[in-house]
Design a protein around this nucleic acid. Sequence first.
DNA 1: AAGTTATTTAGACATTTATCTAAATACTTA
DNA 2: TAAGTATTTAGATAAATGTCTAAATAACTT
Lengths: 84, 84
Amino acid sequence: MNKVFKALNDETRRSILHLLREKSMNAGQIAEQFDMSKPSISHHLDLLYQAELVTKAKKGQFIHYSINTTVLEDLFEWLITLKK
Amino acid sequence: MNKVFKALNDETRRSILHLLREKSMNAGQIAEQFDMSKPSISHHLDLLYQAELVTKAKKGQFIHYSINTTVLEDLFEWLITLKK
DNA sequence: AAGTTATTTAGACATTTATCTAAATACTTA
DNA sequence: TAAGTATTTAGATAAATGTCTAAATAACTT
């Protein structure tokens, strides 16, 4: 869960998750949505990937990113036990 | 929500929340549970307080901390919209 | 009032983080 | 195979973070 909380502790990464909730996208398409360099977005995508909040799949020269809600379930559980 | 994610992005602070879920405690009682200096715990409590994840009340020379689940509701909402 | 206890504030330091530019890698197409 | 496109990796830098010790503040006790 450490990596999940770490990944969520950034506004850009949270925005990326909201984008991917609407539809899966290439790294480039994601980067277009932000006023930030591509390497920076790539770095954010990597942290989301390490936390398993997104999956990625190579499609030719593109890399397609999708949200992975499995880990969000775990976060739900964590919150529930905290609320009792 | 920024402060909430920031506050939750630390194992010590998450542990403090779990302790407070069981029962409210003084700053000193909380500090006893950790192998860390009191000023460090005080700092963690302050971040939790800034995020409104805990409330505090002065009781004589003690300061009593309690968990505040209101903000956790907001986090729930955030998660739900992300899962659609 | 003086001493003791509970907690926070201040200041320092090492580590982590977010960002950038430049370069490298991987794939596609002419 | 050479050129172009998509993405990541490397390396640098400034800012934020977690931790500590020492000192300050506040309240209780004798």
